[in-house]
Amino acid sequence: MRAENVSQKPKFWILHTLLIVLAFFMLVPFAWMILTSFKSLGESVHVPVIVFPKSIHWDNYIDVLYTMPFLTFYFNTIAITALKVLGTLIFSSLAAYAFARIEFPGRNVLFVILISVLMVPGQIYILPLFLIMRDFGWLNTLQAVAVPGMFDAFGVFLLRQFFLSLMKELEESAKLDGCNHLQIYWRIMLPLAKPGLIALTIFTVLASWNELLWPMIVNSSPAKMTLAVGLSWLQGRHGTNYPVLMAGSLMALWPMVLLFLTLQKHFIEGIAMTGTK
């Protein structure tokens, strides 16, 4: 083990220097955001750029709280995201299991139709979805934002690939033991697909947390808005107060960072496994 380490040393250094440089570039926008959130408006728009603010402007953070009901937006965003994740996991995995393991007539055609949904830009659906929500009487509700996001073609595709990569023998032996499809799905497939489910969770959380247009279209009352919408309020028609916007973005962002840090191990595992089968 030790001998191997030594012989690998130059490679190790090259790789790590490269990774550190790349990590640095990834972190620059983030650091810039933090720095800008403490600047005065003048410092934030100055050319050439001013990197460090002369004095710390905490008031940018207070301004955000005056602009929008931040707590309500937190609650709404978390509620919508939780609903979406739960829905996506249940519906996607059930559909994916069917597409991966159950032979039924028209399966491939159906799957292609489902996948083709991925090719259509999301804006196309806005109007029909809006009309459906109106007919449900759901305009200006949290479920109007959450429910349409629960049916995710990408999630079905991702999990189907995952299920296909699992050994068929496991399932066959379960069948011999008298399991029906739902039992196989619940007892065998789901536990094995954990990395895939976690990857899908993260994708869904991110997409839901950042979604802007749909909540803004379907809801009107400030009491039903999300964090992303609140942040867009900070952009004026003529000119934007960037320090306040950055302060707001940071306040909206930290739960995502926290989530990523705690689930990091699973996340990387999930991505790696979906990639290599």
């Binding site: 009309l131 109106r134 247009l213 803004m216 009352s221 400030p222 867009s232």
Partner: peptide, 21 residues
């Protein structure tokens, strides 16, 4: 008061107009 920022205001108004809302 319903605030929709300029960049989305007309999209929202158009959608609302089609849906009668």
């Amino acid at each position: 008061i319903e605030l929709t920022p300029w960049s989305q205001y007309w999209t929202k108004l158009d959608t609302g107009a089609t849906g009668g809302e």
